[in-house]
């Protein structure tokens, strides 16, 4: 059995007494080392979940447990040490006057020794391919570069959970791919849980498990492969399905028998090849 790391128990949240519920009776678990993608249309409650995970918001009902600790005033600082978060807009996250200062900021707050700090700055900037920009001022960086620095800054404090809240939305496709490859490597090496809140289907496909949110409720929870078989239902709640899943579906409509639901080009080609050789 995998160890639970994050637990939402019947969580409901709204921004004010008169406001509608943003989350309603949400329960799920996320395990150590797991990669979970959270998807849903805008306003479905995804980002609220992220903010509840590190105590930026507290629920009105229910309970959130991070690594055995309930998220409340007493434990919030310990929780934040463990839950690193990167947001969508890089301009709202830069605090340093140079790239290396920015990465150092979180470590300074946690009293990391200088020698260790220098070493880690080098490591994390290399991981996000920004090692050539140590002394660059933030306003000289592109949005994508800033975001890579933001990710490096969070990684520098060694969190147990890394949450990317649409953190790649402002990057170009190649930049996104690089970031996702980077965080996947880091997750594999460092035993950290990864939660990606995203609209990018390629990011969803990479995850082990997907939590689909709709109108403040958990709509479904399954592997990407299982989720993307529900094409019509997903579209009804405003979501997309990957090109390959669409193509597989259209092939089925044209009497090409696809037996295993493919998630990537290789898998679909394999299906077609098997079919082809049988003919």
């Amino acid at each position: 059995m995998r160890e639970k790391f994050i637990e939402f128990r019947n969580v409901s949240f709204r921004y004010g007494d008169e406001q509608p519920w943003v989350l309603e009776n949400v329960s799920f678990e996320i395990y150590k080392d797991e990669w979970v993608a959270i998807i849903g249309h805008n306003g479905s409650g995804k980002s609220t979940i992220a903010k509840l995970m590190n105590g930026l918001l507290y629920p009105q009902e229910g309970e959130i447990i991070i690594n055995g600790l309930p998220v409340n005033d007493q434990h919030v600082w310990e929780v934040r040490r463990q839950v690193g978060m990167v947001f969508q807009n890089p301009d709202n996250q830069f605090v340093g006057t140079t790239v290396q200062d920015d990465v150092a900021f979180g470590m300074e707050n946690r009293g990391v020794p200088r020698e260790e700090m220098t070493k880690r700055i080098g490591e994390v900037l290399k991981a996000v391919r920004m090692e050539d920009y140590l002394l660059t001022e933030p306003h000289r960086l592109s949005g994508g570069q800033k975001q890579r620095v933001a990710i490096a800054s969070v990684l520098a404090i060694n969190p147990n959970v890394l949450i990317l809240d649409e953190a790649t939305a402002m990057l170009d496709p190649r930049g996104r791919k690089e970031i996702m490859q980077t965080v996947a490597d880091i997750q594999a090496k460092n035993e950290i849980s990864l939660i990606t809140i995203t609209h990018d289907l390629q990011e969803v496909v990479q995850a082990e498990r997907v939590i689909v949110m709709n109108a403040g409720k958990v709509w479904d929870e399954a592997t990407p492969r299982e989720i993307f078989t529900k094409k019509d239902e997903l579209r009804e709640i405003g979501l997309d399905v990957p090109f390959i899943a669409l193509l597989a579906d259209e092939l089925k409509h044209n009497d090409v028998s696809i037996i295993n639901e493919p998630l990537n080009h290789g898998e679909l080609l394999e299906e077609l090849w098997t079919l082809h050789s049988k003919m």
Binding site: F243, L247, E250, L251, N254, V256, L272, L275
Partner: peptide, 17 residues
């Protein structure tokens, strides 16, 4: 479109057959 591509692939596979 995806629909048109699916038909083309189906034709190719059928042609092979």
């Amino acid at each position: 479109s995806v629909q048109e591509l699916a038909i083309q692939i189906q034709q190719v596979l059928k042609g092979a057959e």
